[in-house]
Nucleic acid binder design. Structure first.
Length: 551
RNA sequence: CUCCUGGUAGCUCAGCUGGAUAGAGCAUCUGCCUUCUAAGCAGAGGGUCGCAGGUUCGAAUCCUGCCCAGGAGGCCA
């Protein structure tokens, strides 16, 4: 409908003002006194043409061709043009929705994009915690959204299996491992070792499986690889449980592999940068990132000749660009925001198109229980790992609560609310709406009545109560929300929309007998409910949250 | 000190790419189950959109300054 109105207006504006390039903004009205759709185009033009907006609006309105689907057009307020459509026209969206085969999704991108999205990428030095969960939920749902909209999406996890932290991890496990053989480890300085229970568990596991093979570390690299592999195994299990499916795990250490001609991806990128944008100072090699807007220059090779994490990350980003994506999305924890300028600087220095890179930041998560924020420390009783959170509140609630808030805002995760099984909990509230519709369909069958969609579609005009017209109109908002989400790379509006839709349904359910004695009306009502059901399913599918048929 | 995020109802948050009377939910108060799931619904009260300026026909939304909260500023990752 929006498109039809937009085309209509565009033609008129081109005619009157020779401004066919102007795309009029058409919005759904908030109040019915303003009609169904509205545009502020007259006020926009007024500014440009230095004319009275009301006069312009009048001119536009009188030039609009008569259409049978438009009931009336009104000039309102300072120059709004409000469109009132016929009830029949307002049913078009609903009809298309109901007729759609299988699952429903209202939006397709005009030009398909090839997108790489990287998220979670937590260091394999510990299990995923509740902070990672937020990135996991957002990244997977966003990927899903973009995919459904017709893009090719590759989801990638960057594994930091290289460098100091991995060595500390391996040493931490090794110490515990030695202790299993009653070997004296008191001389080992474990001040910065990882301490969690998982370290001990891993040591036990390795002892049980490999026996005393690693008491003497002849091949440290092999031991580190083994540890990382085990850590990643657990992380992958958690992700799978959380419905997060990566297409690719990109290992940092693979960047160090020789490509032939005695060079790896890191050395190659270093060479590129050294040509113009590097200098030596105090034994280290620096990148002149200040030339590209960074606050200070950054070290690429430390004075002990080791590569910095930054350098390998440049190589990683270069590789992402080389793989030929139209868009490269990073979802990072907000504590990395200061890191972005130097990455952008490196991309520019390598003469790559930095606009392709979109980085989104996720703010911190704190858990709230009985009104108290629980600290993120590993103290007993605190829920710190994602596994524990899932066990406590379930996958559905966890995903919803993560997703229901703008990601660049700090999240207070209300555990008690997430567990509650009543209308206070939006997840249950939405799922309950879906289950209620399913239950009605079941009840209909039990009463030996069947639902005839064709008949329902033909009798939709019988739905003329205020509550019915409101739902019919609101269904179309879903399409607008989905479009907006694609444009802004966000999913939280879907959560809010689904809650509102569920609310409108529950209200309708309470005010109307759905299983109407009158057959035509009954079919029309069930057609409307089918549309609600399909829309809830569609939204929940994007979020990857279950919609049980019975609760 | 510099740079990011944010500050909207008692609480948790939408709205922020400028538009019509600022929206939800929770909590509070009042009603609704012999009727398709009360895991629900209807109604009421509740606001200097942090503060002060500016831009304009119009500002919660954009700009500037200030206040408050959280975060970031390693040859760590």
């Amino acid at each position: 409908m929006k498109e039809k109105l937009s085309d209509l207006l565009k033609a008129v504006i081109d005619d009157l003002f020779d401004r066919g390039d102007l795309i009029p903004e058409i919005v759904k009205t908030k109040s019915e006194v303003h009609g169904d759709w509205s545009t502020n185009i007259a006020m926009i033009l007024a500014k440009e043409l230095q004319e009275n907006p009301k006069e312009l609006a009048k001119k536009i309105i009188s030039s609009l061709p008569d259409k049978k689907w438009i009931e009336k057009v009104e000039l309102a307020g300072p120059g709004f043009i409000n469109f009132f459509l016929t009830n029949l026209a307002n049913l078009n969206y609903l009809k298309d929705l109901v007729k759609s085969e299988g699952s429903f999704y209202p939006f397709q991108e005009k030009t398909k994009k090839n997108i790489l999205i990287e998220y979670v990428s937590s260091n394999p030095t510990g299990p995923l915690h509740v902070g990672h969960g937020r990135g996991a939920a957002l990244g997977s749902s966003l990927s899903n959204l973009l995919k459904k909209s017709g893009n090719d999406v590759l989801q990638e996890y960057y594994v930091n299996d290289q460098g100091l932290q991995t060595k500390i991890l391996a040493d931490s496990v090794h110490k515990k491992y030695l202790e299993k053989f009653k070997i004296d480890t008191s001389k080992i300085n474990d001040a910065n070792f990882y301490k969690g229970e998982y370290i001990d568990e891993l040591a036990t596991k390795i002892k049980n499986r490999e026996n005393d093979t690693y008491i003497e570390l002849k091949d440290e690299k092999k031991f580190i690889d083994l540890i990382i592999k085990e850590m990643m195994k657990n992380i992958k299990m958690t992700l799978e449980e959380f419905k997060v499916n990566f297409d690719s795990f990109y290992s940092e250490s693979s960047l160090y592999k020789e490509l032939g001609s005695n060079q790896n991806k890191i050395q190659k990128v270093l060479k590129d940068l050294e040509k113009e944008y590097s200098f030596k100072n105090e034994g280290a090699i620096w990148f002149k990132s200040t030339q590209f807007g960074d606050d200070k220059d950054r070290v690429l090779i430390r004075s002990d000749d080791k590569e910095t994490y930054f350098l390998s990350d440049i190589a990683y980003h270069k590789d992402k660009f080389d793989r030929g994506y139209d868009e490269i999305i990073n979802i990072w924890g907000s504590d990395h925001h200061g890191y972005l300028p130097r990455i952008i600087a490196s991309i520019k220095a390598l003469k790559l198109k930095s606009e392709k890179l979109k980085t989104f930041f996720i703010q911190f998560v704190s858990l709230v229980k009985k009104g108290q924020k629980t600290s993120m420390s590993t103290r007993a009783g605190d829920f710190v790992t994602l596994d524990e959170l899932i066990e406590e509140v379930g996958v559905d609630a966890a995903r919803f609560f993560y997703l229901a808030k703008k990601s660049d805002q700090a999240l207070d995760f209300d555990m008690d609310l997430a567990i509650s099984e009543d209308k206070n909990n939006p997840v249950y509230y939405i799922q309950y709406a879906f289950a209620r519709i399913c239950s009605l369909e079941k009840e209909l069958k039990e009463r030996k009545m069947n639902f005839n969609i064709k008949d329902g579609i033909n009798n939709l005009d019988l739905l003329n109560k205020k509550s019915e017209l409101e739902i019919i109109s609101f269904l179309e908002n879903y399409k607008i929300i989905i479009e907006q989400c694609n444009k802004n790379y966000e999913v939280h509006p879907i959560c809010f929309y689904l809650r509102d839709l569920a609310s409108k349904f529950h209200s309708y359910y309470n005010s109307e007998i759905i299983i109407d004695d009158e057959e035509n009306k009954r079919n029309a009502k069930f057609t409307l409910l089918l549309a609600v059901k399909k829309t809830i399913k569609s939204g929940m599918d994007v979020l990857m949250i279950e919609t049980p048929e019975k609760m």
